[in-house]
């Protein structure tokens, strides 16, 4: 081990037996500098959680892909969806992702009211999204095309509904964070939580991109 350190010293691209000296990153948390800062630990932990959430969604996506043609004599994708609503939902969620980013910028500057205001805008846009989706679901159920109708509709309601549920939980979280920022200020751990929230919110938008493409656009076109 120590014998190879000497070589590694000279060659930064040396592969394999790297000792402390030759290691390419002095970043904390990579072993050299000891434990990383709390902010990085929290952010990274939440990042892994988001990845696990992606994997969970992938199970629902896979199921949707497998069940999408099994309509049991009921309607298929191209007969059901109202593209105007989908476009509106997409716009609302995308904009809310943007305002969520602005919120985190204001939080970095520790300005209370702008932060709260962007949180509120984010929340309202998120609420609009959930409302539109809920209206679409209610409409489908009312015309007899609820999730019990066919394998396809089961998979559709579950995949889209799971995303909608995530957004709803996000709204509950956002409301809680608004109260917390208001009452407790920009305490460090609260900032971490808001950071996690914004990661969560952006990640939901990524999932939505997959949903509107696979379920709605390709579904309606195909």
């Amino acid at each position: 081990m120590t014998a190879t350190d000497a070589h590694a010293d000279h060659d930064p691209h040396h592969i394999g037996h790297r000792g402390a000296a030759g290691y390419h990153s002095m970043a904390v948390g990579h072993g050299e500098g000891g434990p990383a800062s709390k902010r990085i630990i929290v952010g990274y932990g939440f990042w892994i959680f988001l990845l696990s959430d992606f994997v969970m969604f992938s199970a629902f996506f896979a199921t949707y892909a497998v069940l999408k043609d099994r309509t049991a004599g009921g309607p298929g994708a191209h007969q059901l969806f109202n593209m105007t609503d989908i476009a509106l939902e997409t716009g609302a969620l995308l904009l809310s992702s943007f305002t969520c980013g602005l919120m985190s910028l204001e939080m970095d500057r520790k300005r209370l009211w702008p932060t709260e205001a962007w949180m509120l805008v984010t929340g309202l846009l998120g609420f609009l999204f959930v409302f539109l989706e809920g209206r679409e679901f209610a409409h489908l159920v009312s015309i007899g095309d609820g999730p019990q109708r066919s394998g396809f509709l089961t998979a559709f309601f579950t995949l889209v509904g799971c995303h909608g549920m995530h957004v709803s939980i996000g709204l509950l979280w956002l409301g809680t964070m608004m109260a917390q920022v208001y009452f407790k200020g920009f305490r460090q751990d609260i900032q971490f939580r808001v950071l996690c929230f914004s990661l969560f919110w952006h990640a939901l938008d990524i999932i939505w991109v997959a949903i509107f493409t696979l379920v709605y656009l390709i579904g309606v076109h195909g």
Binding site: H17, G31, P35, I40, Y44
Partner: peptide, 20 residues
């Protein structure tokens, strides 16, 4: 699982690189 992965990747004693 999230807890332990974060611990192992981000919280090691100084000098405890991956190959140690």
């Amino acid at each position: 699982g999230i807890n332990l992965v974060t611990t192992i990747l981000k919280m090691r004693a100084p000098g405890l690189s991956y190959t140690r």
